[in-house]
């Protein structure tokens, strides 16, 4: 398991946060309890299983919604 923090471009509508949360939740390999979308700091934090999904795939899913990620940070758990 790894812990990731993705910094997105500024989020402006609360429904954006809902969309991102819903999308990331639906991916396999994400620990749902750990998922947090921080609307004001425009960050997504979650733990994920790097054997089931790569950070690239997660980033792609988010950028498909139209939110560009600026920087991803991954730490070992």
């Amino acid at each position: 398991m790894k812990k990731a923090t993705i910094q997105l471009e500024t989020l402006t509508c609360p429904s954006c946060a809902q969309k991102i949360e819903g999308t990331v939740k639906s991916l396999t390999g994400i620990e749902i309890e750990s998922l947090k979308v921080l609307f004001n700091s425009s960050k997504v934090k979650f733990n994920f299983d790097d054997e089931k999904i790569s950070i690239k795939e997660i980033e792609n899913a988010i950028s498909k919604l139209g939110y560009e990620d600026k920087k991803s940070k991954i730490n070992e758990l």
Binding site: C13, S15, Q18, K19, E21, G22, T23, K25, S26, L65, G66
Partner: peptide, 16 residues
Amino acid sequence: AIQAYQALRVKVISID
């Protein structure tokens, strides 16, 4: 409409 559709896909009825 695109924003509305994306929200719908994650079962959110949005303002859009």
